[in-house]
């Protein structure tokens, strides 16, 4: 079932100025999406690991830049329990596929989450280390986190938002 989206929400700019550890707290408190994720969603990156030293004003500028077509990653699409990253447009090339688990428990904060598992045969070996988590920030606004799985555990890589594309 699709979410009842209405007009696509705006992404609050305050998200772009937050560090990863600050967004961790917000992310842990969010509910899972009220409806299954389906269709194309436009993405915006933020709180990238390694950039926490940037002054907030520059971080905001960086993430604003990454929200322009200069960044080839445009978002994600979802269909029937699977999904793919979209490049060069929200309906552009699909690369980096994942399986969607809707009733999962986050190994990071032990709270319910929609789990995006990149360990699927279509992906190159490197991408299979990615584990995504998604929760609902508002009606039609998803806050998600990309983790990197190693033998020692999960490492948070970045956050991103998704709005209907």
């Amino acid at each position: 079932m699709h979410m009842d989206l209405g007009a696509a929400p705006g992404v609050p700019t305050v998200l772009y100025t937050q560090r990863q550890h600050e967004l961790d707290t917000l992310f842990s408190s969010l509910p899972t999406p009220a409806r299954s994720l389906e269709g194309c969603w436009r993405g915006r990156l933020m709180a990238i690991r390694g950039f926490g030293w940037l002054p907030r004003v520059f971080a905001r500028m960086l993430y604003a830049l990454l929200g322009t077509p200069l960044n080839p990653w445009s978002g994600k699409s979802f269909a029937n329990g699977t999904g793919a990253n979209r490049w060069f447009g929200v309906r552009g090339a699909a690369f980096g596929r994942f399986r969607v688990v809707e009733q999962a428990m986050s190994p990071v904060d032990q709270q319910p989450v929609v789990w995006l598992d990149y360990d699927v045969p279509e992906n190159p070996r490197l991408l299979r280390h990615i584990r995504g988590e998604a929760r609902q920030l508002g009606n039609g606004l998803i806050l998600a986190r990309m983790n990197w799985k190693t033998q020692r555990g999960l490492y948070r890589v970045l956050y991103f938002t998704l709005v209907p594309g």
Binding site: V14, T17, Q18, R19, E22, T25, L26, S29, L30, P31, Q111, P112
Partner: peptide, 19 residues
């Protein structure tokens, strides 16, 4: 949020966001 409401505030003294 899951159990009510979340308020995001910027702490000007500590210079961090709190939820």
């Amino acid at each position: 949020v899951r159990d009510g409401w979340c308020v995001t505030a910027y702490d000007h003294r500590a210079k961090v966001y709190r939820h």
